[in-house]
Nucleic acid binder design. Structure first.
Length: 509
RNA sequence: GGAGCGUUGGUCAAGGGGUUAAGACGCCUCCCUUUCACGGAGGAAUCACGGGUUCGAUUCCCGUACGCUCUACCA
């Protein structure tokens, strides 16, 4: 019987959600939706990660903004709840004990100091980082090296311990990765990973297996950095007797720093001046704010699109995809094996594309609140829509709408007179005087009629129209930017146009 | 050090035994527009290296180099 597709994303709520995280969610989501399956959100909240206030809600909000809402999650509940590790603690212990009973795991009583000592003692030039493996474990204090009586005594005394997996020696462990094909490892090269920590919480290794099994996960996608620990997980699925139900794995390529090499991190964004988090993240401990793509003026459509094609493409020339198209066209076979460097310029290009192709009403509320934040009063949404339509092709980020459109709603705060003055003369001043008078008496007021009037007057006064356009523009908008001057004049209205011309004239006198 | 994974222009990438080796971002030139942008036309720039296999390798195989990841009671 075909197993229903259920993929899961398991972030740790330690802070902001970065690009790699969102892309992992996205691929999970696309695969699930494409196969009419479910997308499950599970939260890693071991002792190290649990107490970051607001992080879980933050993740939920990010996913919502991106349009990647999970079918099951701590918030939404579901048939396999709870989804928080801390609420599943007993289950992990039970399975860890089962592994010990079967001889696949053991108690280890070594203190952190003893572990450090071991790492120093066995360190050689050939082996700079000795492992707690099938050789070393014989020399450490654990339920394999110690006698049964001693182990029982320690347990009864309440001596602190961890539970480690007993990795077999010289066994080849292989599995099929959906992106990479067959991958194999020698079991001797992996150490005896801790499964249950001293505080009774599971490590990722135990939790991921137990959770995926008990939540009936069919497909598990994660970053490439997990590849080396895959053999531990495979073994666990075998030892726990669930091998037939093991999910299919896919290890996703990493997103790399734009300069240099290595995984992209939050620090790189700070350093190079671009965001790496989906949304603003406020670190409650340091009070440090990290800007997100959303607040910087990115559209979720663009953000998702840009992330989707960073490591995948459908083999055609198409680059701009909606979520629906992505669901339809996504396939893991087309996901790349190698990591990709993040390119902020390209990310902005995607945003520009989406600004141009989406109806302005889709993002008008965001732009409106941006205006309000900049103390520009907008009381006519209709007018804002018209303005946005006019200026959208010169806006790369939503925030660009402020500079490109503010002058439609208020007079420019200052006028770049320096750009007019060098070529300014009395004839031109006279021209604008006359134009104002003509404007005053005209009945018609639209871009075409204004242009006609403007050009007729120029011809009468024997001045080239071209020489008058720049001054006119600067009078209306304050600088050398904005859409066509006559369009601007039409939208701001007759009174306002005349007012701005006269004001500018008074400055140029 | 070891293991795993990877390597097509500056970046993202298509392709894959015989091609003028697509396309996009960025950059440059020109056209449009007397602002900027959009749009249009061009341009510079690439198969890491060495061996095989083959009539022929960017493509297949083996090495080498380089890069990345992992090598925690972090995920």
């Amino acid at each position: 019987m075909e197993k229903k597709v259920r993929v899961r994303f398991a972030p740790s709520p330690t802070g902001g959600l970065h690009l790699g995280g969102v892309r992992t969610v996205l691929y999970n989501y696309l695969f699930a939706k494409k196969n009419k399956g479910e997308f499950v959100l599970r939260i890693e909240d071991t002792d190290q990660t649990r107490y970051v206030a607001g992080a879980e809600e933050y993740i939920q909000e990010c996913l919502q903004w991106c349009g990647l809402v999970p079918d099951e999650s701590p918030q939404h509940g579901g048939p396999y709840a709870p989804y928080r590790q801390s609420e599943r603690k007993e289950m992990y212990r039970q399975y860890a004990e089962q592994l010990i009973a079967q001889g696949n795991a053991y108690y280890a009583f070594d203190t952190p100091e003893e572990l450090d000592e071991m790492r120093i003692k066995f360190k050689t030039d050939d082996n700079p980082s000795p492992q707690y493996n099938y050789v070393a474990r014989e020399k450490m204090r654990n339920s394999i090296s110690l006698g049964e009586d001693e182990v029982n005594r320690l347990l009864n005394e309440g001596a602190p311990y961890v539970i480690r997996i007993k990795m077999p020696a010289e066994e080849t462990i292989s599995f099929i990765d959906m992106i990479r094909g067959e991958v194999s490892f020698n079991s001797s090269l992996t150490d005896d990973k801790v499964l249950l920590k001293g505080d009774g919480m599971p490590t990722y290794h135990l939790a991921v297996v137990v959770d995926d099994y008990s939540m009936k996960i069919s497909h598990a996608f994660r970053g490439e950095e997990w590849l080396p620990s895959a053999p531990v997980h495979i073994l666990l699925w075998k030892y726990l007797g669930w091998y037939d139900e093991m999910p299919q794995w896919a290890h996703l390529p990493l997103i790399m720093k734009p300069d240099g090499h290595g995984k992209l991190s939050k620090r790189d964004g700070d350093r190079l001046g671009f965001p790496v988090f989906a949304m603003n993240w406020m670190d409650a401990k340091t009070n440090e704010l990290t800007t997100g793509f959303r607040e910087l003026g990115f559209l979720p459509e663009a953000f998702i699109n840009m992330l989707a094609v960073l490591g995948w493409n459908d083999g055609t020339e198409q680059e701009v995809f909606s979520l629906e198209e992505l669901i339809e066209k996504f396939s893991l076979e087309k996901v790349h094996k190698g990591g990709a460097k993040f390119d902020y310029e390209k990310a902005k290009w995607f945003n520009h594309e989406w600004i141009k192709r989406l109806p302005v009403t889709n993002y008008l509320p965001q732009v409106k609140s941006l205006y309000e934040a900049n103390h520009i009063e907008v009381n006519d949404d209709q007018k804002l829509a018209v303005v946005m339509e006019l200026i959208k092709e010169r806006c790369t980020l939503l925030t660009d709408f402020v500079l490109q459109g503010a002058f439609f709603f208020q007079s420019p705060a200052s006028i770049d007179a320096a750009s007019i003055k060098p070529k300014w003369n009395d004839d031109k001043a006279m021209f604008f005087d006359i134009v104002c008078e003509k404007f005053m008496v005209t009945e018609e007021w639209n871009a075409a009629s204004i242009e006609l009037l403007f050009k007729e007057t120029a011809t009468e006064k024997n001045i080239k129209v071209g020489e008058l356009q720049l001054p006119f523009r600067i009078m209306l908008v304050g600088g050398k930017f904005g859409p066509g001057v006559f369009d601007i004049a039409a939208i701001i209205g007759k009174e306002e146009t005349i007012k701005r011309i006269r004001y500018a004239l008074s400055i140029l006198m």
